[in-house]
C-alpha cells in the first residue's frame, strides 16, 4: 500500500469516526425507569421510557446557525404569535449575538415555540417535564440523588446564585448519565411545561376545590422538602409559550430507537 493511500484511508476513517462520535457525544442515553414526580398523577409513580438527551444546553453559536438557515426565526422576523417582544433581546442583531455574549454560553430569551421548532428541525424534540425531571434527579454518582441533602442544597445554592446565564456550557458537573448543566446555568424549556397546574397562589394549590382547574385534586405535591423542584414547577407555572426569559434556555431529546436506527445505518 502506498503511503499516500494509507494516509488517505486513515484520513477518511478518522472523518467517519469523528463525525459519528460527534453525533453520539452530543447526546447521552438516559435509561428509563419509574419515579415519583413532585406533582404526580393518581398512580403516583411515572414510567419514563429510555431516551437520549443533549449533553449540553443549546448555545448561542448553535442557535445562530439555526437562525441563519431558518430566517423566519430571526429576531425581527419571528411571528408575534410565537414570541413576546423580548425574544433574543440580548443579541446584537438578527445574525449576531454580539461581543457581550459568549458563543459557548447557553442561548436564552427563547420562546417555547422557537425552542420546539429548533429541536424538531434536528429530528429531535423538547423533553417532557417527566423526562427532564427524571434525568435531573442524578448527581455525579447516582441516578436518583434527591434524598441526598448535599444534592438538594447544591441545587438550591444555584437557584439563588445570580446571573449564571452568562457562564459557558460544561461549567457545572457531569451527572450520572453524562449530562452537563441540568442545574447550574439556566432553566430549560420542556415540551409540556403547560401541564403544570399551579395558579401562582401556592397556598391555594393544595386546595382540592379549585374552579380554575378541573380535577385539581391531583396537584398536591408529593415531597414537601424538595424545594428545588418546587421552584422549577413554580417557574413552569408562571410561563406562557410566547414568553422568553434571560435565565431560560433549552436542550433537546430524542427517543432511543431513532438514535439506534441512525447508528445502525
Amino acid at each position: 500500500m502506498s503511503p499516500f493511500i494509507r494516509i488517505a484511508i486513515t484520513f477518511i476513517c478518522s472523518i467517519i469516526v469523528f463525525t459519528t462520535s460527534a453525533q453520539r457525544n452530543d447526546m447521552a442515553e438516559v435509561k428509563g425507569g419509574t419515579y415519583i414526580p413532585l406533582y404526580g398523577v393518581d398512580s403516583t409513580t411515572v414510567d419514563v421510557q429510555s431516551f437520549k438527551m443533549d449533553v449540553y444546553p443549546v448555545t448561542n453559536r448553535e442557535y445562530l446557525n439555526f437562525v441563519k438557515e431558518n430566517p423566519q426565526w430571526q429576531r425581527s422576523r419571528i411571528k408575534r404569535l410565537f414570541s413576546d417582544g423580548s425574544y433574543l433581546s440580548d443579541w446584537e442583531g438578527d445574525l449576531s449575538y454580539g461581543e457581550k455574549l459568549k458563543p459557548n454560553a447557553p442561548v436564552t430569551s427563547i420562546s417555547w415555540f422557537a425552542a420546539k421548532n429548533y429541536c424538531e428541525l434536528q429530528g429531535k424534540r423538547l423533553p417532557t417535564v417527566d423526562e427532564w425531571e427524571y434525568a435531573a434527579m442524578a448527581d455525579q454518582t447516582t441516578a436518583d440523588a434527591r434524598r441526598k441533602e448535599s444534592y438538594n442544597q447544591q441545587i438550591l445554592d444555584w437557584y439563588e446564585a445570580l446571573k449564571t446565564f452568562k457562564k459557558e456550557i460544561g461549567s457545572t458537573f457531569k451527572n450520572y448519565w453524562g449530562i452537563y448543566d441540568l442545574h447550574g446555568l439556566v432553566w430549560e424549556w420542556t415540551l409540556d411545561f403547560n401541564s403544570v397546574l399551579i395558579s401562582g397562589e401556592s397556598r391555594k394549590d393544595v386546595d382540592k376545590d379549585s374552579n380554575l382547574f378541573c380535577g385539581s385534586a391531583a396537584v398536591g405535591a408529593t415531597d414537601l422538602m424538595n424545594y428545588a423542584a418546587f421552584m422549577r414547577y413554580a417557574l413552569r407555572g408562571s410561563l406562557k409559550a410566547n414568553y422568553t426569559m434571560r435565565n431560560l434556555g433549552f436542550r433537546c431529546v430524542a427517543p432511543l430507537e431513532n438514535i439506534n436506527e441512525n447508528h445502525s445505518k
Binding site: 398523577v41 393518581d42 403547560n194 397546574l197
Partner: peptide, 8 residues
Amino acid sequence: AVNYKRIS
C-alpha cells in the same frame, strides 16, 4: 394558555 395534564 390552557394547561392540562393526564392524571389517569
